[in-house]
Design a binder for these strands. Structure first.
Length: 582
RNA sequence: GCGCCUAUAGCUCAACCGGAUAGAGCAACGGCCUUCUAAGCCGUAGGUUGCAGGUUCGAGUCCUGCUGGGCGCGCCA
């Protein structure tokens, strides 16, 4: 599978409008030096090397550094420091570079001229909302499936984590040039739906979960009672993908079932809407049956000779494809296991032309990964081995009053996603759920989120944006308003250390976005935004923007405008609001 | 027993295909509003990156083993 490397510095992958970024400049200089070394015979002429230029962590190492000399030490057969010296000697002069140093084992450190670093402002302002976006994906069709909750209850915090992670990955891929389809898959006709119907019917009869006649494993939550009431009142419910009017006939189990599914789908839609998550496609498991896709998949697997009958069931020999045991496809009772429609569904995705498919799921379903991939291999349909991709998020736990709130649909004790959004707000909920790596478990402490509500990490970002808007607004009201042209013509006024920090941070954004997208890790953006906001707050406290010096003031306002833009773009990637005042 | 994830400051978490002296927030302590939003800033303190080996110029990051935690191992989804 080809993925954009994103990280490697490449020439001309970004539209640059003639503005040269520091890294691009350094890359050119190093390429020159490299060619010189080769022509002098210090390096094998045919030696290819991927030049890496990193932003430094430590300012005493300059703004950018390369380990090029260390990488070249082996092929050149010379100590790294010697190569570093030769490289530095061969570097063409550039006004963009203030100083070059060799440090440590052979790192070459570059100190950028602030005026050259300030060029990023021009690019940010000319590209506006598209700054940071790229065409790495070249329009490739990507599908991301996430949430995919069955309509048997409201969404909980685990679904919320999946929802925001999937949604943000979709935003990242869209921003890096992919054509993204967001899809929600659900079962509207299986055993769980029968259970749902029985539960609602029991409520219609006035039964309580404590009654002996209550269906075994029935859903006990209060929401079932509400469905029963609305069904008997003939209510019409409208979900994103269906609309159903209740028949109010307690004996029509099909009608009860249809209504309950539509009702819960609508509830989930409302949850997702409150969370600002939208889908392009709702895919029904039942359609795989009604359109014969399940049957066709079975036939194909049988024809390929990967199946056998045993104990009255039909098995797929998934062990041929790396699974630890074979899996039942068709049960003794003639029904298929969930696994088969899963395979049929993914074959359908492949046939729809999605060369990259990402399944975002809870890690408790991780055993399906090997199984589904094995099933797809057994189809012999030309599907690559590691397809589809999976992003698995670890469990999210809700804590209130220092105690875990169990998320049991059957027991009915519940903290729903909507509860969280109502209590701590959409932006804070999204931020908490997306700001950390998906591989780590997550504790969502409601009390903490509430207690911090005045002092929340997401507000830190939004406050930075609001502050910037305020400064820019003040400038607009001023008798000598902000003149962008004057500002851009005097970027050499930006000489403060805090200003340079900000400029370097702005310049890192496009790469940061590309890296987060190719790693499918939206938390990287949250991290970046914290750093950007921090740089801005430091700058704001250390440097007065609205000075009397016309050139300096306008240059600083241009910087502010650029920072505001990047903050806005980044907040947007995470689906967070960018308030103009707080 | 097997598989996947995980272990970093008191707590919650970062750390860019392996890079230089491991960074933030919260909590603690000390400062900063007669000037652009103090939901902010500056400073102090806080670490044997679970343990033991290995790979190499260099390891929180890669490999092996061990320990602790989570999840999974249905003819449930």
């Amino acid at each position: 599978m080809s993925r954009p490397s994103g990280i490697a510095v490449r020439q001309r992958t970004q539209p640059n409008n003639g503005f040269s970024l520091m890294k691009e400049t350094l890359l050119e200089l190093l390429n020159h030096a490299l060619a010189t070394l080769k022509s002098e015979g210090l390096l094998p002429a045919d030696h290819a090397v991927d030049i890496r230029i990193d932003a430094t962590r430590d300012k005493s190492h300059g703004d950018y550094a390369t380990n090029l000399a260390l990488v070249l030490a082996k092929p050149a057969g010379k100590p790294p420091r010697e190569i570093a010296e030769a490289l530095v000697k061969a570097l063409p002069d550039s006004a963009a570079v203030e100083k070059v140093e060799i440090k440590g084992p052979g790192f070459i450190n570059f100190f950028a001229a602030t005026s050259a670093a300030a060029e990023i402002i021009k690019r940010v302002l000319s590209e506006g909302e598209t700054f940071g976006r790229s065409h790495h994906g070249q329009g490739e069709k990507v599908q991301i499936e996430f949430v995919s909750a069955n309509p048997t209850g409201p969404l909980h915090v685990g679904h919320g984590r999946g929802a925001v992670v999937g949604d943000c990955i979709a935003r990242l891929l869209d921003a890096t040039g992919y054509q993204v389809t967001k899809e929600f898959y659900y079962n509207d006709a299986g055993a769980q739906i029968v259970n749902l119907e029985r539960s609602v019917s029991a409520r219609i009869k006035g039964l309580e979960p404590s009654d002996p006649a209550w269906p075994e494993d029935g859903y006990r939550g209060e929401y079932i009672k509400e469905i029963a009431r609305d069904y008997m009142q003939g209510v019409t419910v409208r979900a994103d993908d269906r609309e159903v009017t209740a028949k109010a006939d307690p004996d029509d189990s099909k009608a009860v079932s249809d209504f309950a599914v539509a009702y819960l789908r609508r509830e989930q839609d409302l949850d997702l809407k409150a969370f600002d998550v939208k889908f392009d496609v709702y895919f029904l498991e039942s359609s795989l049956y009604s359109e014969g896709k399940v049957e066709k998949t079975v036939e194909r697997l049988v024809a390929n000779g990967h199946t056998y009958e045993a104990d009255g069931a039909l098995w797929l020999r998934t062990t041929d494809f790396g699974d630890d045991k074979d899996r039942v496809m068709r049960k003794r009772d003639g029904f298929y296991t969930y696994f088969l429609p899963d395979v049929a569904y993914h074959l359908d995705k492949w046939q729809r032309g999605f060369t990259t498919v990402i399944d975002e799921q809870g890690a408790d379903h991780h055993s399906t990964v090997t199984r589904v991939r094995a099933g797809l291999q057994a189809l012999d349909a030309g599907i690559p081995k590691g397809w589809p991709e999976y992003v698995l998020h670890q469990m999210a736990m809700v804590v209130r009053d220092g105690k875990e709130v169990k998320l049991s649909k059957r027991a009915g004790s519940y903290v729903t996603l909507r509860d969280l959004i109502d209590e701590v707000g959409r932006d804070a909920t999204r931020y908490f759920l997306v700001a950390r790596k998906v591989d780590s478990q997550l504790t969502f402490d409601i009390d903490l989120a509430l207690a911090q509500s005045n002092d929340n990490p997401v507000y830190y970002l939004q406050y930075a944006h609001a502050r910037l808007c305020s400064v820019l607004k003040r400038a607009a009201e001023n008798e000598v308003p902000f003149d962008e042209q004057i500002g851009l013509a005097h970027l050499d006024q930006l000489t403060e250390e805090r200003e340079k920090d900000l400029l370097n941070r702005l310049a890192a954004y496009p790469e940061q976005l590309a890296r987060a997208a190719s790693a499918r890790e939206p938390h990287q953006i949250a991290q970046y935004l914290q750093e950007l906001a921090s740089d801005f707050h430091s700058f704001y406290n250390a440097v007065k923007v609205m000075t009397d010096d016309e050139f300096q003031r306008n240059a600083r306002l241009a910087l502010c405008l650029a920072v505001r833009q990047v903050l806005f773009n980044g907040l947007n990637l995470l689906g967070l609001g960018a308030p103009e005042e707080m």
